[in-house]
């Protein structure tokens, strides 16, 4: 099935009660791509991420992953299809140590590859190695972000979903995290779909990108195209650092 995307979101509408947060979204992510999604606060970016993971589920439309319809699957079964997420708010386990948090990420394979994989995470984020017996809740914001991404990677995902990995981090750390994502993508062919407020960095990193406004995708294109697009520049880049 050449040309079939890894993830295909078709006409998805998601509601919170009666409020429509996604108003018919179409998105596709190919194997080995880095695709990003930018948009203003409240546009529905996080909602799309969560809809892919099945909580909340799409009321209309479908989510196809690896040729299989996962729209109506419960969240934990979607996760078992190897879609790993570093969600908004990081959601690490605060009373567990860094090491145990990483263990939780490797639960799908019952820790079979744990020792190999944890070394990889530690080379990617040496900070986590230093802090491995510290409780997750006492890590700094940036360290928690690294842990959240590291935990998602421990699941050996086919698709990695990142919701604002740069949130609240120092520019240098953002650089480090983006470099890590790029490296995983190039060396391991990891497919990444990320949401970003830091539009400049995200567009530079991505192969392709989507712009979301009020629950709808209004623009899409390669990262370079969107960076050059005057509308995008005006809405998401001017005034920012670039």
């Amino acid at each position: 099935m050449a040309g079939e995307p890894l993830l295909k979101v078709q006409g998805v509408e998601t509601y919170y009660g009666n409020i429509r947060a996604l108003a018919g979204v179409d998105i596709s992510v190919d194997k080995g791509e880095i695709v990003s999604l930018i948009g203003a606060n409240g546009a529905g970016k996080s909602t799309l991420m969560m809809t892919i993971c099945g909580s909340p589920q799409a009321r209309v439309g479908s989510v196809i992953f690896d040729g299989e319809d996962i729209t109506r699957l419960p969240t934990h079964l979607i996760a078992r299809k190897r879609i790993a997420q570093s969600p908004e708010g990081r959601r690490i386990f605060p009373r567990m140590t860094v090491f145990e948090n990483l263990q939780m990420g490797a639960g799908l394979d019952n820790l079979k590859f744990f020792n190999e994989d944890v070394e990889k995470i530690f080379t990617l984020f040496p900070r986590l190695k230093e802090r491995q017996s510290q409780r997750g809740g006492t890590l700094s914001g940036g360290e928690q972000q690294m842990l959240s991404i590291g935990r998602a990677l421990m699941a050996r995902p086919k698709l990695l979903l990142l919701d604002e990995p740069s949130l609240g981090l120092a520019p240098l750390i953002v650089k480090g995290i983006f470099a890590a994502i790029k490296k995983l993508n190039q060396e391991e062919g990891l497919t990444v779909f990320l949401v970003e407020q830091n539009a400049f960095a995200a567009l530079k990193l991505s192969d392709r990108a989507y712009v979301m406004v009020n629950g709808k995708v209004t623009m899409s294109g390669s990262g370079k195209e969107l960076l050059a697009n005057p509308e995008v520049r005006a809405a998401y880049l001017e005034g920012g650092r670039h």
Binding site: P74, A79, P87, F93, M96, G107, A155
Partner: peptide, 22 residues
């Protein structure tokens, strides 16, 4: 695994689900 899942559940139910825990 079940014990780890219990403790994880205490900490964050949503995170548990997104890690494939039933």
């Amino acid at each position: 695994p079940i014990g780890r899942a219990w403790e994880a559940l205490r900490e964050d139910e949503i995170a548990c689900r997104s890690l494939g825990i039933d």
